Amino acid sequence: MPIIAPQHAWKDKEHVPSEEWPDDCGVQWGGSGLVIGQEPGSSRITAFFEAFPAKGGFFRGEGATIADAEAQALRKFRRKQACVSHAWARDKWTNGGAICRKCGAFEVAMHPVVRLGAWRDALGVMELDSIASGFLRPRPGDDDRQRKWRKRMALRAAVAGIALPDMPPGFTDHGFDDPYVHACEAAVGAWLRRHSIPSVDAENGLGALLEGLSRHSLARLAENDAEAPDAP
């Protein structure tokens, strides 16, 4: 059984996710999710299902019902599992994200394209969302690329003026109820209330979808004025 987001103890709790998802895969869903469009009037409401496997990747399905949305996400997951030799392409991504030209899966599968002085660049919506999600904390099994990414992002957050909590020693996986993550969310939320949420850069496709989801998440953080809890 996958790891179910805590809000489903009360929200859309009638849905039971498929056991086909890995046990270390986080899942969440909703019967009325907002998809932010790039053009005025193009936003829409749909049932959705999202899966975040621990081994990487992101799978989102949409449909008339949550069950339909999960079925679509599972089809994408199965396509990736069946793809024995991915052909990763950067497309417009420069942060290491890539799309498989065979199965269409998304994953951080490449080294990021680093430009001199890039650490001074303004943070984008997906970078802010990653910072708020606690992804700057080192994890067991990090390779050199991942360690460099976390250190660089921490530097950029400091330059931008985000008062992140102290990094807890070691790594403990608290699942969806992580005090360090809550503290990061509060820090980014406080920063957002002093600044505007960055615009979405991608015009269409998966990039626009992911950036739209990050923007929606940041808008929620900006509206929450709760103080940051103490990180462990």
Rank of each mutant, 00 (worst) to 15 (best):
F58S: 11
R75G: 07
A54K: 11
L74Y: 09
E62R: 05
W88G: 00
A89R: 12
A73Q: 00
F59V: 02
R90M: 07
A69W: 01
Q72W: 07
S85T: 12
K76D: 11
V84N: 08
A89K: 08
P53E: 09
Q81S: 09
F59W: 04
A89I: 07
E62G: 05
D68F: 00
K55S: 12
D68E: 12
E62A: 06
I66N: 01
S85F: 14
A71T: 06
A67D: 14
Q81N: 10
F52R: 08
E70G: 02
G63I: 02
F52V: 09
A64Q: 10
G56C: 10
K55W: 15
A89P: 05
A87T: 08
K55E: 15
Q81Y: 07
C83V: 04
R90K: 14
I66S: 00
A69G: 06
P53D: 11
A64E: 13
R90I: 05
R79Y: 06
S85H: 12
K55A: 15
R90G: 05
L74K: 02
I66C: 01
G63R: 02
E62K: 05
W88H: 00
A64C: 08
A87K: 10
K80Y: 15
P53K: 01
R90S: 09
A69L: 03
R79A: 13
F59N: 02
G63M: 03
K80D: 13
A82K: 07
F59R: 02
F52P: 03
R79P: 08
A71V: 00
F58R: 12
A69E: 08
E62Q: 07
I66R: 01
Q81W: 11
A89D: 15
A89Q: 12
A54F: 04
H86C: 09
R79D: 15
C83Y: 00
A54T: 13
A54R: 12
C83K: 08
H86D: 03
I66E: 03
G57V: 06
E62L: 11
E62I: 12
A89W: 15
A73N: 04
E70W: 13
A71S: 12
K55F: 13
P53V: 02
A73L: 07
A69F: 01
Q72H: 11
K80W: 14
R78M: 08
K55Q: 14
G57D: 00
F52D: 09
S85W: 08
A73G: 05
E62W: 11
G56K: 11
F58I: 14
P53Q: 06
T65P: 05
K76W: 09
T65L: 11
G56R: 07
V84G: 06
A64V: 12
E70T: 05
Q72T: 09
A69N: 02
R79M: 15
R75S: 15
G57E: 02
A69H: 00
C83N: 05
Q81P: 09
F58C: 14
K80H: 13
F58Y: 15
F58W: 15
C83R: 06
I66F: 04
Q81H: 14
A67K: 00
R79L: 04
L74A: 02
C83E: 01
A87Y: 00
P53S: 10
S85I: 08
Q72N: 09
G56N: 06
E70S: 00
W88Q: 00
A71H: 10
K76Y: 14
